[in-house]
Design a protein around this nucleic acid. Structure first.
Lengths: 219, 219
DNA sequence: CCCCTGATTTAGTGCCGTCTAAATCCTAAC
DNA sequence: GTTAGGATTTAGACGGCACTAAATCAGGGG
């Protein structure tokens, strides 16, 4: 069994692989993600490699083995199910659940998470709209475009936020960019990737950073 | 903040203090409880003492400081609330919940446990009948007698089991010694502390070990 | 009052996961 | 091609938490 720390590395590598679409993840990218020195990452990555959880070649980066990926997906499943629980059953807000789920996901009792899933009605998406892996690790990835891929005149509905940072989520609530809200792209700025939106009845400019985190179903 | 391991030591010391009624707990007793070598306990106890969580004097044993006790009680509160959740909401059995709660109790988010308590209706006893400390650490201790304190002819109702071992709990279910069941003491054996009971409609002998774990409200 | 025995502590190790500083590698630019 | 500069790895250290073996203490029996 991987330790809590090892699990966090696996999750980080998994998340980076998904985001980058890249096969091999760099030491530095991992270091930034888990907030440690690059040297510590090298150490850890060797240990993970010894345990056959990652494929590692010096100077060439890291990728998850099947086993490592399965563990990572299981963590994501737990994380998102706990988030659903925290919001739906305990009444927490959007921006509060991530941190707690971050701890709860490391509690490993196979029966526990399956009962929890049943208790919640086997939800397929978490409160941020992101897909919850099923018990076999299958993930129904969003096929929708990111908001900053839309063009002037396009309209759509926000279906997911791919970022858990509390500050960011509070910002989204403030500007009204929550799930199921309808938006229309009024203008796009090529030079900085920002764009101006109609959100419900309001106008608002958002930066590229924001636009690349939101999934939108085009209307 | 104490580490997970330190927390387990605090809990162990707290539990032993309650059970023994003793003021100072011996190194060996702790070692047995947390399943480590006595030497490791000495190490840890020094660390806890440095952090002002225990009072420690060489060769004289250990006791919790106010702060250490408050942490221990908080862990007990969490543990028992999660047990209630696991049984009442997720449908786990008597003997399954302890192990999971053992992990969940180490998730520390003050708001989480209070919301959970509300969600569960602020129960005052866990599924084994043991009192759940309130958010200030107050514990409504059972005043009832232990089963092996009853005499021939006494009748009573089981109100609590002070032992979490799964094997033991399954034994209790097998012989029918579950919460709220009515029993009558038919005979007591002084030489080994065992006794013969009527449990519902059945007769059964139980050992001292069993009798000293069950709280009974006398009728 | 001394000694024996069991309880306890010290000494010496090892593994995990982190760090900083220094060495090394890789690549892109010249 | 060489080389500068960034990415990465090595070297060396430390703190937490465990262990075993050996030393030390403490309390009851003689």
């Amino acid at each position: 069994m991987p330790s809590l720390t090892e699990e966090n590395y696996l999750k980080a590598i998994f998340a980076l692989s998904e985001k980058e679409g890249a096969d091999r993840i760099s030491t530095n990218a991992i270091a930034a993600r888990v907030n440690t020195a690059a040297a510590s990452v090298t150490d850890m990555v060797k240990r993970l490699s010894d345990k056959n959880l990652v494929e590692y070649e010096k100077y060439k980066g890291v990728s998850l083995t099947a086993e490592g990926e399965s563990i990572a997906k299981d963590l994501v499943r737990k994380h998102r199910l706990w988030e659903v629980f925290l919001m739906q059953k305990l009444g927490f807000a959007w921006d509060e659940v991530h941190e707690m789920a971050e701890d709860l996901e490391h509690v490993h009792h196979p029966k526990l998470i399956e009962r929890l899933a049943d208790f919640l009605g086997n939800p397929r998406f978490d409160p941020h709209g992101d897909p919850i892996p099923d018990r076999h690790g299958n993930i129904a990835y969003h096929k929708e475009l990111y908001l900053n891929q839309l063009k002037s005149g396009d309209r759509g509905v926000i279906v997911a936020v791919e970022q858990d940072d509390a500050e960011f989520l509070r910002y989204l609530v403030r500007v009204g960019l929550v799930l199921n809200v309808e938006i229309e792209v009024l203008e796009t700025e090529d030079y900085d990737g920002s764009c101006t939106l109609r959100i419900g009845r309001n106008k608002r400019s958002i930066s590229e950073k924001v636009g690349e985190k939101l999934r939108v179903r085009k209307l």
